[in-house]
Amino acid sequence: MAFKEYRLGAAMVGGALGLSMTITIFMPSFDLRSAVSTKMALEKQLSAGFDIGFGYADPLLLGINRPITVDLETDPKTGAKLDPPVRAYVYKAGVPMPPNIRHPHDLGKGVQDLSESQGQISTVSGSNHSKGSQEGVVFTLALGEFNGEELTYIENASVTKGWTPDATLAAAGDKNTHLISKGKTEFVVQGCWWCHTLLPEQTQDWQAFGAPPYLGDFNGENPTAFGSDRKAPDILHVASRNSSREWMMMHFFNPRLVQVNSIMPRFDYLWGDKDAQGNTIDFDKWRAEYKEYSEGKRTYPPEVPDYAPDSEIRALIDWVLSLK
């Protein structure tokens, strides 16, 4: 073993790989850490909550232990009317906190300072990334000024306004409740992102699919799920183009109902067994009638069943409609 070329070689491989990682990981980390959360990032973070991927709180990705987004028309504590309505993010007891409550530095300069001083986010008790708070927390967004710049920051409404999760959910009612986090879980699990990207590009995308995202639009998001293989329209701003819940329902149940040339799969299985009235959905009958329709034997396609409020499709549509 007198021949030593491999020792020099091994050291050189280590040096080359180390240099490469210094340039591609260590150096960009300064740029990435300086990103200041935009309003879009804060909305996405609070509505989606902690990492959507596999985790202790939701190991099978069923959408359990996730925050709930509500629009409040009345104050949950005082009962006073709120005009315009206020969007609140409800974290019940045990729901993992959004990532930047635990790591406020990642909110970025200004947003962190305002969220801590005005928004009281450091007071979230028992804030633990996997266990969540013991009593639950309600967050809202607020506008503040930092060094002459207007910034949106996170407010711990449980402390500043005394809103509790249960009272907030009761005040909102099911009509104003949006299961956005569960919906994003469905987006990841059903593999929507293999075709629908979340990253408009700097070409005609700007006009067709909306503004490309900026630095700071992703803080606190995991997974970002940009997608790489676009076989379908980009959906980062889809609800700005089309916010019709009825259209979404028909399109998910069978995309060929609204776009005959679509190659999107049918997501009728997300309806579950029962419809909104509690009746069993007869998929075989529906498909038989649809077949007759597509063969020209019927004038109209069969009606798409109304989904149940606890169905998976409700959460998915809630999430899609949150993509402004």
């Binding site: 990682m21 990981i25 960009p28 980390s29 990435l32 990103a35 990032a41 973070q45 902690f50 990492d51 991927g53 596999f54 990532p99 930047n100 990642d106 990334h129 630095l215 992703f218 803080n219 606190g220 998001e221 995991n222 997974p223 970002t224 940009f226």
Partner: peptide, 20 residues
């Protein structure tokens, strides 16, 4: 080891996208 660190250490945002 490094590429999966967003999952091990719950990195978020553009760091997660970049490391992916």
């Amino acid at each position: 080891l490094v590429g999966n660190s967003p999952e091990y250490f719950h990195l978020t945002g553009l760091s997660e996208a970049y490391l992916t």
